[in-house]
Amino acid sequence: MSESVLARIARQAVGLMDLTSLNEDDSEQSIVALCQQAVTPVGTVAAICVYPHFIGIVSDTLRRLQVSEQIAIATVVNFPHGNHSITKVEQDIAAAVQAGAHEIDLVLPYRQLMAGDDAFALAMVRAAKVACAGVEDKGAILKVIIESGELATPALINQACELAIAGGADFIKTSTGKVAVNATLASAEIMLKAIRASGKDVGFKAAGGVRTTVDARQYLQLAATIMGPDWIRPSHFRFGASSLLNQLLDTLGANHDASLSRGY
């Protein structure tokens, strides 16, 4: 494979990244540094994904960096175990949207789904979609994390995708990055085919375990095969990662901060 092919893939992948930090030891300083790293020599990432209490810091920092119009702010709810009530999810989304979040990554109550309670999963996604609408001029897109590694079987992964899409998800996302098995090409194929079969305008996000330019290339090739190459743009395709950015910039020979190494 020629370096020019990998470089082209790396440049594309930078613009598809949700640069993510969801660590217990995150601090104001580390989140400010994350925002600074999101502005790379080859362009900005698509979004920054952080815990809800860091939304304001991200918003202020992106404004200071003069990239607030280019980089979306994403946050997580019902995270990471998917065991909150619908009321709690609604409240958390409302607060996040009010604080300035543009994108909400909701963990599907996958354990209930595995126990056979698909009605609860669908109800939560529907409620989350309504909450994401926000008030007045504030609203957010909804990305539903199905936790494909825990669902494990193709049938359950497909069912979770169908429920999320039926509930109004704007994206379906593989994983929280907090379990033993996160994004895999096998689960991504099931999810992309579920999107295609739905006929709806739904995006896909691979999160957890996508660490190299070669990894990114495999997911992009898969998406192009199933959905077509023109489908792959930030409105439809994302990588949820942190350490991936350094690898992409290494591929491009771009200067970067080597401190960006904690995985997600």
Rank of each mutant, 00 (worst) to 15 (best):
A166H: 15
F79V: 02
E150F: 05
R211K: 11
A38N: 05
A216W: 00
R262D: 01
G134R: 05
A140C: 07
A46C: 12
V42D: 09
D257N: 14
M114P: 06
L245T: 03
Q98T: 09
A72L: 14
A254W: 15
Y110L: 07
Q218G: 09
P154S: 06
A194K: 03
A74M: 10
G139E: 10
N23G: 11
A160H: 00
Q159E: 09
N23R: 13
M17C: 15
D118S: 15
D26P: 07
E24Y: 08
G116N: 00
R111Y: 02
S198L: 15
L106M: 11
A46H: 04
I57N: 06
V181T: 08
D201Y: 04
T184K: 02
V50D: 13
D230H: 10
D215A: 03
D105C: 12
I172Q: 12
D201A: 12
F120M: 03
T225R: 15
I141M: 13
G177M: 15
S235A: 13
A188C: 11
L245E: 05
Q218E: 12
V125D: 00
V77N: 02
D25T: 06
A254C: 14
L142F: 02
D201C: 05
F120K: 04
A183P: 08
G43V: 06
Q159F: 04
S235F: 08
V67C: 10
Q112S: 10
L248W: 05
A258C: 13
A10V: 01
F239M: 11
Q66D: 13
R211F: 04
V202P: 03
N246C: 13
L19W: 00
I157A: 11
V130Y: 10
Q29Y: 13
A119Y: 00
A128M: 05
D60C: 11
R64V: 12
A258Q: 09
G149I: 07
A224P: 06
N255H: 14
A183Q: 02
S4P: 11
G228F: 03
I93W: 06
T87L: 14
E136S: 08
I55H: 00
R196N: 00
A140R: 04
G116V: 01
V202D: 00
K200G: 07
Q98V: 11
N182T: 01
Y219H: 12
Q159R: 13
V210Y: 07
A72V: 12
G15V: 10
A94D: 04
N255P: 12
M124R: 04
A121E: 01
A164N: 11
V130L: 15
N255L: 13
I165T: 01
N83G: 08
K138W: 03
R211W: 04
Q12T: 02
M1N: 13
E24W: 10
R11L: 05
L192C: 10
S148Y: 14
G168K: 08
E90I: 10
S30H: 13
S242N: 11
D25L: 06
P41I: 01
G253V: 06
P109K: 03
I195N: 04
L22A: 02
A127T: 00
Q221D: 15
A13W: 00
V97P: 15
V76R: 05
